[in-house]
Simulated scan of single mutants.
Amino acid sequence: MASVAIILLLAYLFGSVPAGVLVARTYGVDIRKVGSGNIGATNVLRTLGLGPALVVAFFDVFKGGIAVLIARAVGLEGWLLGGVALAAVLGHNYSLFLGFRGGKGVATSFGTLLFLDPALALWTLPIGLSVMLLTRYVSAGSMTGGVAATVLALALGRPPWLAATVALMALLIFWTHRENLRRLQAGTERRLGERVEVGGA
């Protein structure tokens, strides 16, 4: 049990590494003080452009995947593997290095799913992206992706631990997007492609 606790802690710490903050800092920007204040790739895209956003997205995806790889390498499977995936996402959302604040967990959730079940992740991706591109709302695509992954996990007869893990990640996505939901309802949500001036909001 001690080894399981260590792996869960490592997964949380991997997830806690705030790539958005670190990348933006190289440009002299505190990403938490511009745009939406979120540390994820979407706010980096609006603030710093495509290149930095891709770096952040890549890192946020694969830090979740690395946690799953390490867990599998030491023999964890089933519910424990699902716990590792959730620990990585919680690390991103509530980073130890940011006073237990963080991002919205979409890229890290996708990264863990990509390594837990590549086929399920790759079926989910075009659904989320299609909604995002059609509506130009990243938040709408993210939440749709969470729902789609859960439905597909159940429809494809994935093991209960995996379906439960995916459902919990989807719930976390909805929780971290609760303000986005309010803005969508009010018609004030920012659309994909809108830029934010670094010197302003």
Rank of each mutant, 00 (worst) to 15 (best):
L86I: 14
V196E: 10
N38S: 09
L90H: 09
L98E: 11
L152W: 05
V89P: 09
G145L: 00
A119S: 04
L181D: 03
S142M: 00
V44Q: 11
S139I: 02
I173Y: 06
T165I: 08
L172V: 12
I31A: 01
F14A: 05
A186C: 03
S16G: 02
W79F: 06
F110G: 08
M143C: 05
A88V: 02
F100S: 07
N93Q: 08
G145P: 00
A153C: 10
G37V: 01
L22W: 10
A140S: 14
S109I: 01
F62G: 02
S95G: 03
S109C: 09
L156P: 02
A2E: 13
N43E: 01
A19F: 02
F97Y: 15
R158I: 01
G15Q: 08
T108L: 07
E197K: 15
G49V: 13
A67N: 14
L172I: 15
L134F: 02
G37C: 09
V198F: 05
K63W: 08
F62D: 05
S130C: 03
R190V: 07
I70V: 15
G28M: 05
G99F: 13
V29S: 04
A164I: 07
G145E: 04
L129R: 12
P126F: 11
A149F: 00
R101L: 03
L171P: 04
L154C: 01
R46E: 00
R46S: 05
L86D: 07
S16K: 12
E189P: 06
I31E: 05
R182T: 12
T188I: 07
G193C: 06
A186D: 11
L48N: 14
G193K: 15
I39D: 04
L116S: 12
G141K: 11
R25N: 06
A170T: 08
S3N: 04
S16I: 05
T176I: 08
A87T: 12
A19P: 00
G82K: 11
M132S: 01
L162T: 11
L98M: 14
G51A: 07
V151G: 07
M169K: 06
M1E: 12
R158H: 09
A119M: 05
R191E: 00
I39S: 00
H177D: 02
A148K: 10
Y94N: 01
T176R: 15
L45G: 13
W175A: 12
T188R: 08
I70F: 14
N43W: 13
P118S: 01
H177I: 02
V4P: 11
T135A: 03
T150L: 00
R190I: 08
H177Q: 11
G145T: 11
R101N: 13
T188G: 05
G49K: 15
G105D: 07
G146Q: 09
G187S: 03
Q185H: 12
L50I: 13
M132I: 04
M132E: 00
A57Y: 14
V138F: 14
I39V: 10
G64P: 10
P159V: 06
T108V: 04
V44G: 09
E194C: 10
L114D: 08
F58T: 14
N38Q: 03
A153G: 07
A167Q: 05
L152N: 11
G199R: 15
G199L: 07
V4T: 15
Y137R: 15
F59R: 08
G105V: 09
I173F: 07
V17M: 09
E197T: 12
G193Y: 09
A88I: 08
G75K: 13
E189N: 07
